[in-house]
Design a protein around this nucleic acid. Structure first.
Ligand SMILES: [Mn+2]
Ligand SMILES: [Mn+2]
Ligand SMILES: [Zn+2]
Ligand SMILES: [Zn+2]
Lengths: 158, 158
DNA sequence: ATTATTATTGAGAATCTATTGCAATAATAA
DNA sequence: TTATTATTGCAATAGATTCTCAATAATAAT
């Protein structure tokens, strides 16, 4: 079952309604595996001439979260970002301080840290969030210069 | 040299001016070792009858960051939180999803992760932010009940 | 197919918070 | 004391998100 089918099922089972607007939104979101934010998504659809109101986007996102399709990611730039969950294993992020680029990577050692902390404190650790930051290869070359290319993120980080 | 002296020095050397407002702000911030946010700090001073405008608080924080006294920590509840840097080693955080309590812990294994990622990508990693979350012992006992006690954080997490 | 029910939409208003403009004030230097 | 100008507090602004509400449209019932 792909994302769109999962969503349709969720909508149906929640007594909600499938609408063309919602279809357009999720089709766009799951077209790529990129992170996204509301504004970028909104402008993206606007450019494609299938404009959807921001209100509808804002109202669809909680549904996508509740149906387990996306989750919030925090990039500390003043607004919320989201990423895909279905078919995407948990991962960590590296953020380039030069160009804002986000790189995903997997790292099982964090689980050891979780266990260690859990044992030593008697707490239940249900998850973690790890973000590395520094400078990507391109930015190291340019030594401080701005680069605008974004690898997993179509959001322009300003 | 304590925090206040460091700050006075920084202000002087930057061609800025020491003011009673700034003194009040940093005195309050460094009175405890707690994390803090603007609103809590503002209300705290208001209660103590030494009210400072939020604008001044917002304008003082960058100075404190630039002088190496505090740094930004969380963003997850829509606004920024800060913690002390001077005299505080780098550490990670555990956040209790039940009561919002923040526990600090040190963990050198993260440095290995940094190195590993740095080598495999050819990037320069300058830092990391690791946050574990789950349930503290008290919340595990109470099984879902709310507890309001906060250990290192005077911020009420809502 | 028609009708009834009611969830959804879009536009804009409202809200909430971080930031900024500005005139008055006050810290520092001359 | 006076001049200079950084700082302050208030209010205005900006940006993200939520809400209001009348019009619309998806679904179920007939
Ligand atoms: Mn990601
Ligand atoms: Mn801390
Ligand atoms: Zn870069
Ligand atoms: Zn707890």
């Amino acid at each position: 079952m792909n994302e769109i089918e999962v969503f349709r099922k969720y909508v149906k089972e929640s007594g909600l309604r499938n609408t063309p607007e919602r279809e357009v939104i999720i089709e766009e979101i799951f077209l790529t595996h990129d992170h996204f934010d509301v504004d970028t998504l909104y402008l993206c659809l606007k450019n494609k001439k299938c404009s959807i109101s921001k209100a509808s986007i804002y109202r669809t996102i909680p549904l996508l979260i509740e149906s387990g399709l996306i989750k919030e990611v925090f990039f500390e730039d003043g607004h919320m970002h989201y990423e895909h969950v279905l078919g995407h294993e948990h991962h960590c992020h590296f953020r380039c301080l030069g160009c804002g680029k986000i790189i995903e990577f997997k790292q099982d050692e964090v689980l050891d840290i979780e266990k260690k902390f859990s044992r030593s404190h008697g707490f239940e650790v249900t998850g973690h969030k790890l973000e590395l930051f520094g400078y990507c290869r391109e930015c190291l070359k340019k030594e401080g210069k701005d680069c605008k290319v974004s690898i997993v993120d179509r959001v322009n980080p300003n």
